[in-house]
Design a protein around this nucleic acid. Structure first.
Length: 935
DNA sequence: CCTGTCACG
DNA sequence: GACGTACGTGACAGGG
């Protein structure tokens, strides 16, 4: 121990440990420890940074005291002030988490004090120590570039941006914030911070905040005299959001009076000790650095063995090319063998899982077997309920020999599948998790190779396992067809002989693991980790729950409607035949075309590429002026559609056990980030016509409950206004104007008061056209006007909103340059066709223009859905469906108002804090006993 | 299995 | 100057 007290002449260095870690993590490829695959990229970078720091600070201006300060995991006292503080922070990446404790070990190995305190952030400890140093008359340098620490500068305290090697003193703070260090918190309180989710004053950034603080002297003075501000919006914000601003100040104000259980004197600089540091570096297998440090300290470099032969060879980052060999897959038939696999999984920390079932409907099918894979090429299959081949001979459905009881296998695997420290990897894990859920297992945490591929390669190709395996593993998976057969003679997987099932099933797990190994590091390299971690992975359990919830559908209502439709159709059919002068199949476009254009000789018959006449709704509508028949066919078609697709087909989807309809969401369904719904598709239930809309009356709430429908109002146009930076549109949305009327007024010079529905309709079509990548032809067809008129509208539109054209041009240019476009949340949508020639190029261009808008809207509602379960956990509400810009809930009547308020808030704030839109998001809510009423 | 048609956002 | 065009989906029926 030193007997000198910290005081004048002393110089304290405080290193922001978290900043070091994240910089190291992001700057380096995801290295792993050779012997066992432990991720150590961040640790390695961290150690190098400490080493560089030590070397750089041995000169005349060397510090006398030093500490590395870390954030303690978990919540801080700021979360008690504001529960959403830092709520937007994605969880640390999987491969970084195990490295956090190692960076503490590294700090101690370098013989540097290492401090963190539960309930506080590193910044508070730094603040307290900096104040202590200053008060003792010493100097303090904070090694960080975090602007939150700038409030501490002054009186001997400075910051050092180690990256740029730039010192920041009071002048530097003024440069950054426009005010001195003593007023930094005031500016931060106003400007807020999207990274930490500090709300601040909406619409006020650092520039404006500094202006105001400099004018009024302090935040308190400003808020007290807010009435004097000239700008009406600014004045209103400051008055209305006073509480929020004061809360923000509390959040950004660092605690410089913490009680610490150590003193400055404990932080005295100590030289690293070779017998501590070198073994640590050797353990991390950092050869270069341990040699360098050994030289530096005049010690002998430790010997680091090449990959220990006994250790498992799998690594996350650099999978060795192991050939696929079905012979090597193991069939697990008893508890003892399964225990062996479980031990391997525990040792490894991750496992690829695949389930085999009797069908595809997760709500109904039974588990047949489970495959596991821990290392590329090493997988097993656990058959559980395979039946004996010729069971009908004996009249029973006896289990095949050599299978362990399903309950026993599930009981053994459950602790592993639910262990928070073990990652369960799947290809479309939602499916397997839903199956296992029915056997009492809540699988978590999960990773999903399909979702990784979606984040990485969206727009490039599909994300099914077969396609991914062929493309990325150069291996064609064993097809399932020969095992199950096709058509009427097809069998279910439980009838497949176990010896045939093993290579197929185990291989799926093997492929999944290999894909995961390949994709995981790519997420980081391609900068889509945040997309995967915040928009994909956390959505899986949410969708699974929604699908399990299902929605109640009233069979009798559908059945009655179906009969009514059938009657009407029969009547129409008779009339149609009468007019045609012969019987024919109205449902056959081919026959209809021949009747219309050959027999009746109506004009405008155009044959498509197959040689058949086109008979689409637009063509029939045009013909309706010529003849009575086409209009009847249109009516017939509408009824036919409603009957076959909805009133009939929906009944077949009512689950016998729950009496509800359970759709399945395909998270990777649309390239833009939207989802698709299938079996049945509940995202295309009719609404536009009165007759179709009545289908929604069959979607009902349980007794004592109501359905709530909450939908985003004009979300895509709002996003366009933000992305293209169109002030007129932003302003219109801010004032709650009718956006289509405003567009019409702007374009056609008609005052809003004199707006006619017709003019507004045209403007509305143009607004939608813009989102789709407008063309004269498309608009003309939609509005049924001459093409040159449509082109005139478009020209006029671009004249009035030049920013839109700029946005479109820039987006296409970006797509050509990068091969993808991006949403505001960083989702990449690849546009491989953008470089092609001919009509494909036109499609690709329009898709590229549309994708960021549609995709950003899709990302927003995903964020809302991900936050929703926690937000409504205290309510008896259930989230049932998503229809692109709408969420449907079921809730007891007593909780309706609170559910609406909560869900609305979550949806309207879903973009923040990752993205601060210039346009507010507005959600409309409706309720009712059925979906028609709720809308 | 492909095409045309039509339901939704 | 001709060509062919609105963006994103899924289900059903007819027809080869």
């Amino acid at each position: 121990m030193s007997d000198t007290q910290f005081g004048k002449g002393c110089h304290l260095h405080l290193i922001d440990g978290s900043a070091f870690i994240f910089r190291a993590y992001h700057a380096l490829p995801p290295l792993t420890r050779k012997s066992d695959g432990l991720p150590i990229g961040a640790v390695s970078g961290f150690c190098n940074m400490l080493h560089k720091y030590v070397e750089a600070n041995s000169g005349p201006d060397a510090p006398t005291h030093v500490a590395v300060i870390f954030d303690h995991s978990g919540k801080s006292f700021r979360n008690d002030l504001y529960d959403l503080y830092k709520a937007n922070r994605p969880p640390a990446p999987e491969d970084l988490r195990p490295q956090f404790p190692l960076t503490r070990d590294a700090t101690r190995a370098f013989n540097i004090a290492c401090k963190e305190i539960e309930g506080f952030e590193a910044d508070d400890i730094i603040a307290t120590l900096a104040h202590q140093a200053r008060d003792a008359g010493g100097r303090c340098t904070i090694i960080s570039s975090d602007k939150d620490l700038m409030q501490l500068v002054g009186g001997g305290v400075e910051m050092l941006d180690a990256m740029k090697n730039k010192r920041i003193d009071s002048d530097g703070v003024v440069e950054k914030f426009g005010v001195g260090p003593d007023r930094v918190v005031d500016v931060q309180a106003l400007a807020g911070d999207s990274v930490d989710n500090v709300p601040g004053a909406p619409g006020i950034g650092i520039k404006t905040a500094a202006l105001l603080i400099n004018e009024y002297g302090s935040l308190e003075a400003l808020l007290d005299r807010a009435e004097e501000i000239k700008q009406p919006k600014r004045r209103q914000t400051l008055i209305e959001k006073r509480d929020q601003i004061e809360l923000s100040k509390q959040l950004v104000q660092l605690d410089c009076n913490m009680d610490l259980d150590f003193t400055l004197d404990d932080l005295e600089v100590r030289d690293p000790e070779a017998d501590v540091l070198l073994p640590f570096l050797a353990d991390m297998e950092l050869r270069t650095l341990s040699k360098r440090m050994a030289d530096h300290m005049g010690a002998e470099a430790p010997v680091i063995a090449e990959a220990a032969p006994s250790a498992p060879s799998a690594e996350i980052s650099a999978p060795v090319a192991v050939p696929f060999d079905a012979e090597k897959y193991e069939c697990v038939r008893d508890a003892e063998a399964l225990q062996g696999w479980i031990a391997q999984i525990r040792e490894r920390g991750w496992v690829a899982v695949d389930t085999e079932t009797t069908g595809l409907d997760e709500m109904v099918v039974d588990l047949v077997g489970i495959s596991l894979c821990v290392t590329a090429g090493k997988a097993c299959y656990i058959p559980l309920t395979h039946k004996v081949g010729n069971d009908d001979l004996f009249g029973g459905d006896g289990l095949a020999e050599g299978q362990m009881p399903l309950e026993e296998a599930v009981a053994l695997l459950k602790p592993v599948l639910e262990d928070p420290a073990i990652i369960k990897i799947g290809q479309n894990m939602k499916y397997d998790a839903k199956i296992l859920h029915r056997y009492g297992v809540q699988v978590a945490p999960i990773d999903d190779s399909m979702l990784m591929s979606y984040a990485l390669h969206g727009g490039e190709h599909g994300h099914g396992m077969d396609a991914l395996s062929e493309r990325y593993l150069e291996h064609k998976p064993i097809p399932i067809k020969p095992l199950l057969g096709t058509g009427k003679s097809a069998i279910t997987f439980d009838k497949v002989a176990i010896e045939d099932a093993v290579p197929y099933a185990a291989e799926d797990a093997d492929i999944t693991l290999r894909l995961w190994q390949q994709f995981k590091p790519k997420l980081h390299q391609r900068q889509v980790t945040t997309v995967y971690e915040t928009l994909e992975r956390p959505l899986v359990p949410v969708l699974a729950q929604m699908e399990r919830n299902g929605i109640k559908v009233d069979r009798d209502t559908l059945s009655r409607m179906s009969n009514a439709f059938a009657q009407k159709m029969a009547g129409l059919e008779a009339e149609i035949h009468e007019l045609a002068g012969q019987d024919f199949n109205v449902g056959s476009p081919k026959q209809l075309g021949e009747i219309l254009f050959d027999k009746l000789e109506l004009p405008g018959g155009k044959k498509g590429k197959t040689g058949a006449y086109a008979t689409g709704a637009d063509i029939l509508e045009d013909l309706a002026t010529e003849h009575a028949l086409p209009a009847l066919v249109l009516d017939w078609r509408q009824l036919s559609k409603l009957k076959s697709t909805y009133t009939d087909a929906l009944q077949d989807h009512i689950n016998a056990e729950t009496g509800r309809v359970h759709t399945s969401y395909l998270q990777t369904g649309a390239n833009t980030g939207r989802m698709a719904s299938s079996d049945p598709n509940l995202q295309n239930i009719p609404i536009r016509t009165e007759e179709g809309r009545r289908i929604r009356e069959a979607f009902v709430a349980e007794e004592g409950n109501v359905l709530l429908a909450l939908d985003y109002s004009q979300i895509e146009l709002r996003i366009l206004a933000h992305m293209a930076g169109i002030d007129a549109l932003k302003e219109a949305f801010a004032q709650g104007q009718d956006i289509h009327a405003m567009t019409a007024s702007e374009m056609f010079d008609v005052p809003l008061a004199e707006m006619t529905p017709e003019i507004r309709r045209q403007a509305k079509a143009i607004n939608f056209g813009v989102i789709y990548g407008i063309s004269g032809f498309g608009l003309a067809r939609n509005l049924r006007i001459p093409r040159k008129d449509a082109q005139g509208f478009i020209d006029r539109y671009f004249e009035r909103f030049p920013g839109i054209r700029r946005y479109m041009d820039e987006t296409v240019t970006f797509a050509k340059e990068h091969g993808y476009v991006e949403t505001l949340f960083g989702r990449k949508i690849h546009t491989p066709d953008i470089a092609s020639k001919g009509p494909r190029a036109g499609f690709a261009k329009r898709a590229a223009i549309n994708a960021p808008i549609q995709g950003t809207a899709a990302d927003v509602i995903r964020r809302a859905m991900i936050r929703m379960p926690d937000a409504i956990a205290h309510l008896p509400a259930r989230m049932l469906l998503q229809v692109h810009d709408e969420l449907l809930f079921e809730v007891p009547e007593a909780a309706v108002d609170e559910t609406i308020a909560t869900a609305k808030r979550v949806m309207e704030t879903a973009a923040t804090p990752a993205v601060q839109l210039d346009v507010k998001l507005v959600v409309d809510a409706g309720k009712g006993a059925n979906w028609a009423e709720a809308h």
